[in-house]
Amino acid sequence: MIELLFSIAVGVLSMCGVYLMLRARTFPVVLGLTLLSYAVNLFLFGSGRLIPGDPPLIADGVERYVDPLPQALVLTAIVIGFAMTAFVMVLALRALNDLGNDHVDGRAD
């Protein structure tokens, strides 16, 4: 059940992300990239299998563990994705300033 919900969430997020990324205005495109990066982060997280309730660290009396590596990978990906989104946001504002409109090709229509 959790797998189904999880994969639907990843699918819907990437669908919306790709749709928004193909828009012609910078703001929807940035939103689309953000949604896509959420989908990607979830997907990366899922690569360690979805096992609820087990510790990711060595503990006494525990037999089953969750793979901690995907969590570390997701953390790195979130940090990088966050920085990149901030940068692209500033760049989009600058493009609005420099080019006079928010079209991704910089032409008013």
Binding site: M21, T26, V88, L91, A92, A95, D98, L99, V104, G106
Partner: peptide, 9 residues
């Protein structure tokens, strides 16, 4: 700016 926007996205 325009070139950078395309490149970054």
């Amino acid at each position: 700016t325009r070139a950078a926007l395309h490149y970054v996205l």
